[in-house]
Each structure stands twice: as structure tokens, then as C-alpha cells.
Simulated assay, not measured.
Amino acid sequence: MTSQKLLELIDLTAHAHRTVRTLSGGTRRRLEIARALVHNPRVLFLDEPTNGLAPHTRAAIWEHLRRLCQEHDTTVFLTTHHLQEAEHCDQIAIIDHGSLAAEGSPRELKAMIGADIVTLRTDDDAQVAEAVHRLLGLPTWTGPGGVRLRTPDGAALVPRLCAELAALAVPVRAVTVEPPTLDDVFLHHTDRPL
């Protein structure tokens, strides 16, 4: 890839003739990535490569890294605490205190958790949490976001859940179903908060 194309990819064309010390933090980060890519490496080590970048720049960098891997058979090793970055990887290894806690593709790791998170926003979270536990036998927890519970198929549970809770005098304002995230996988395998 030519230097000009690389500058365009990383959105640095307008800064091509500026000195590094005059660049903002995000622009410097993009320059670091461009420097790592300039020689078309066979193996590339990146540490939180898109941290602090604008969404359009992040998307362009991930697209280039995908093409680099596919077209040039480049292997990219990524280290990150931002697990959204790890979603772009083919394989993930979760390392906790120097030991391998889990490994697999993002899909495989999420499947290990195997449970959606259902969140209920109500006018009385404590009463709803107790009712869900009593009526459905599911453990719940409450927090600022509402009543939460884990279930293998959240979408299938919602109609039954709403029917069971209809008898309560407490209105359910909203129900959301979220599949497991890599953050959930990390917390599950390390058994401690991020």
C-alpha cells in the first residue's frame, strides 16, 4: 500500500505535513496504526488499536485489518481490555492472572454462557423481582436499570413473563432482551468484576 493510500485510509491526509507534537491524541493514535501498517507486516501486534478513535475511523481501520488478514495472509494479535474490539477477532483467548481462562471464537465464547439477559423496567422493581422468582423460579437481581434475569431464550420467555406479571398492580414499562456479550463471558470466566 502506498503512503498516500495509507494516509487516506487512516484519515490523515489533511495532517500529512504537520509535526507529530501538533497532533491531537486521536490523530496521534491513527498515526501509530499507520506506522505499524506501512511495511505490510506478516504478523502484526496491536494493543487497543482503535481506543479513542471516532466511529468512522474505527470502522475503516477494522475493514483494512480484515482485508490485510484475508488478502495478505497477515496474522494480527490484539490485546485489549475493550472487549468490543475483540468482537472483530476470529479467535479470542481470555487471560486472567496469567492463566488461560477461556478461548474460542466470539460466537463460541458467548454460546458457553448460553443465556440472554432480560431486563424489566417497572414502577416497583423489588415487588417484580420477588414475583418473577416466585412465579417462574428464576433468580433475579435489581439495579438502576431495572430487574434483570438470565434465561436461555429470552425472546420466548417474554410473553409468558408478561402474562404472569399482568396480575400485579405494578406496571411493566419496558422489557428488553440482550444476548450475552464478551463482557459477560469475561465476567463468567474470571468470576470477578471488570
Rank of each mutant, 00 (worst) to 15 (best):
V147P: 10
I33K: 04
H188P: 00
S3E: 13
V38Y: 02
E103G: 04
Q84E: 15
D116F: 12
F77M: 13
A166F: 08
A131D: 06
T19A: 01
H189I: 02
H72M: 03
T22K: 05
V177W: 14
A166G: 01
L53V: 08
V38E: 04
H72C: 00
D123T: 12
P193L: 11
I61W: 00
G98H: 09
L6G: 06
R160E: 11
V177Q: 15
H88C: 00
L136G: 08
E85S: 09
Q70I: 08
G25N: 07
A102S: 04
A34C: 01
A54D: 14
D73N: 15
L68P: 02
A163T: 12
L187F: 14
A167F: 13
T50A: 06
V38Q: 06
L149A: 11
G146V: 12
R173W: 13
W62F: 01
A115I: 02
I61V: 02
L7S: 13
T122W: 05
T80R: 08
P139T: 15
V118D: 10
L100Q: 08
D123Q: 15
T176H: 03
P106R: 13
V132C: 10
D183Q: 12
L149G: 07
R67G: 05
G98T: 07
H88K: 04
V175H: 03
L100H: 11
P55F: 06
F77K: 01
W141G: 15
M1S: 09
M1I: 03
L68T: 05
D124W: 12
H17G: 03
S105K: 05
P144I: 09
E87V: 06
R148T: 11
H72E: 11
I10V: 15
R192Y: 01
S105Y: 05
L37E: 01
H97K: 14
R107G: 08
V147T: 14
L100C: 09
L157I: 12
L149N: 12
L46N: 01
L44V: 02
A60Q: 04
L7I: 11
H72I: 00
A93R: 09
L182V: 07
P193K: 09
P179Y: 08
L46Q: 01
G143V: 03
W141V: 11
P49R: 07
P41M: 08
R121E: 11
L120T: 12
A101M: 07
V158I: 12
L68C: 04
P55C: 03
E164F: 10
E87Y: 08
V158G: 05
T13M: 14
L37G: 03
G145N: 12
R28H: 04
V185T: 10
A115E: 11
Q4W: 07
G98W: 06
G26D: 04
D11W: 02
L168E: 14
S24D: 03
H72K: 10
G114A: 08
E8S: 10
R21C: 00
K5T: 13
R67P: 00
T142H: 04
L23Q: 00
L194D: 08
T13H: 12
